[in-house]
Simulated assay, not measured.
Amino acid sequence: MCNSVFRKSFILPLLFLFLLTATGLHEARAASESELRQQVENMQKVYRSLTSFSFDFRQLTRSGGRDRHGAGNSIFYRPASGSTGIMRWNYNEPDKQIILNDGKKLSVYTQKDKQVLVSSAAELESDITYSLFAGNRNLTDDFNVRPAESRFTTGGIRQDIQVAQLVPKQPHGQIKAVHVWFDGKSMIQKLVMEDHFDTLTELVFSNIKFNALPAGSAKTVEELVRLDLPPGTEVVEQ
């Protein structure tokens, strides 16, 4: 999913972006902290129950008056009940890049660099997008759930969308706060991550599909973990 993963071009400060097109502008419905906490817990339960989900995403990073854009698609697949699963992000913009977590290794392939960086998948445990979609830890163990800041609750918000702010309980090296937009079915629509240097990374999801891939399919696993690296690609173990 996020800042740690998403550099590696824009990498998921990487792993997690979904539809905010509305016919009108509305204020997000206010909810108490206890209501929001319960909704976030329910949302995480929904994602943990899935055998697969996929989506298209658009990414915008704003830092120092500069905007950087990215786009692509992502697939998560859980081969067996209780497994952490496979997560793959395919960037098509601004450059071709693949971020693959096969459950053991995290591989980041950048086409223009002709290089793939390989590290332990354990580093994803602190990634916010990974925690939202597939992590084994409860979000509410690591984050305080608070109402959204007012700057994130006006303009272009569908009336059925709820916004929650997640603030790390302990100082986090990369994340200052995360805002999560989700609908009544607990489908995450958008993430905005803010770091300690006021850099904002926004991920918006569309074409979301739940359980569209065949469950328990060895062929699907094989296809998802294949990188098909061209000859001459440098592999760097970290």
Rank of each mutant, 00 (worst) to 15 (best):
T153G: 07
D142P: 06
V178T: 13
M193V: 11
T154S: 14
K209D: 10
Y130A: 03
A148T: 09
N136Q: 08
H196M: 01
H172V: 03
F133I: 05
T154L: 09
N207K: 15
A164Y: 03
V180Y: 00
G135W: 01
K190L: 02
S206L: 03
G155D: 06
S206W: 09
Q165E: 13
T201P: 10
I188G: 00
N207Q: 14
P168C: 13
T199M: 08
F197D: 10
G156P: 03
M187C: 00
A148Q: 01
V192N: 08
G156R: 13
E202S: 15
F210P: 12
P168L: 12
F152S: 00
E202G: 13
F210N: 09
I175T: 02
K185H: 14
L132P: 00
K169N: 13
F197T: 11
L139A: 02
D160W: 05
F205H: 05
Q189V: 08
Q162E: 02
M187S: 09
R137Y: 06
Q162M: 02
S206I: 02
T153P: 01
F133W: 01
E202F: 09
V167S: 06
R151I: 10
T153W: 03
P168H: 11
G173W: 02
Q174M: 06
R158L: 05
L166W: 06
K169E: 09
P168I: 04
L166P: 04
T153C: 10
K190R: 15
Q165M: 11
R146I: 00
T140L: 01
V204Y: 09
E194I: 15
R151L: 12
T140E: 03
D141S: 07
R151D: 14
T199G: 01
V180T: 03
Q162G: 05
G135M: 05
N144G: 03
V204G: 09
L203G: 13
A134H: 00
